[in-house]
Design a protein around this nucleic acid. Structure first.
Lengths: 192, 192
DNA sequence: CTTGTTGGCCTACGGTTGTTGAAATGACCT
DNA sequence: AGGTCATTTCAACAACCGTAGGCCAACAAG
């Protein structure tokens, strides 16, 4: 996240990443409006004004805190036949360990900028996969949207709304049920 | 909504329903935190204090404004073979014309009470259907959760996040793609 | 040591929020 | 008519928000 490739590692880097960590946590738990700068600062044990100093304003902080790389496998190396299983496995893994995704989903539900960012992520990262494996490239956006409706729907019910039966599902169960769905959305012909 | 069964129709009923209408609109558009009482009151052309007088506080207003009957078909009259198609058709119809559902989803994403209410709706209304059509009653909660993950996922991408390809889908396309999924979640055996 | 730069805390401003209570208005009954 | 009560208006409160600027300590360079 904090790559040291650009010249000088600043003395304030520990503070900066502490802010980002707290921001991710608060955005994930509370959404955009209720995750106040003051609360984030308190969680990071620093003064609220530091947030302003380093990230300009609340939107800047959000942009810096929530940058996501889904780390999807290279489309080229993806077998057409188990794209569904691969994707679902990967997504569950990702959501399970990464609170940033929950933060982004929560914020996207009430915040225009958040929704657009989420849109961008799926356009940039899921769409190429769809373009690669689906029969007609022209259908790729629709098919990627269908696949993401299922993937995000699971995330919504399991990690945000926390429906008890959705929380109770084991990761393998999720994969077993969802993989055929996603596979079908990506590769099957338009259903009769 | 405003049933006149309990004795006296109050003189303030027009104001009360005007408040509820405006509240539904603002909650759907902005979510819980950003839908301010003042904005709702302005939309209803009344004074903010009326909201307090009639609904106690903001949570009370939300509870009064967002009560949902999914109007699902009677489980008894539901054919096992096209439960999926029936449900998806019904849901799309409902979401398409009813902004309350969008409001509830937006609020559920950032508000604990909203999430619980959404939970209750699906437990009370979708679960009986699952119990009726799914092979083993013990699996009903998990199967209902899977079905709602797909249904709510579509609602999320189409009505809240507004992914362009999801918005572009025609209702018939949605039904064609999603019906087999929901059908499978409800009735098919655990996938290999 | 002196100087400039960076990191950090403190205080405060202007605005908005949910909420309250008192005063004004109106409708209805005798 | 006068009185009673629900309805509405108005002004204000305390709390909180994002944000700005000034002040001091720690450090680096000369």
């Amino acid at each position: 996240m904090t790559s040291s490739l650009s010249s000088t590692p600043r003395r304030s880097d520990v503070t900066r990443t502490a802010i980002l960590d707290a921001a991710r946590e608060r955005f994930a738990a509370d959404g955009y409006e209720r995750a106040t700068i003051r609360a984030i600062a308190k969680h990071a044990n620093i003064d609220p004004s530091m947030v302003m100093r380093y990230y300009g304003n609340k939107e800047g902080l959000f942009a810096a805190a929530v940058s996501i790389d889904l780390k999807l496998p290279d489309p080229a190396s993806l077998s057409r036949d188990d794209a569904g299983r691969t994707l679902v496995t990967h997504f569950v893994d990702m959501w399970e360990k990464n609170e940033v995704l929950t933060a982004l989903l929560r914020v996207g539900a009430t915040n225009q900028a958040g929704a657009e960012r989420m849109q961008g992520i799926f356009a940039d990262q899921l769409l190429p996969v769809a373009r690669r494996v689906c029969p007609d490239p022209e259908q790729a956006p629709a098919r990627a949207a269908l696949a993401s409706s299922q993937l995000l729907g699971l995330a919504l019910t399991r990690y945000v709304l926390r429906f008890p039966p959705a929380v109770a599902l084991a990761p393998e169960e999720i994969v077993a049920w969802l993989a055929p769905t996603v596979q079908r959305y990506l590769t099957a012909p338009y259903p009769a």
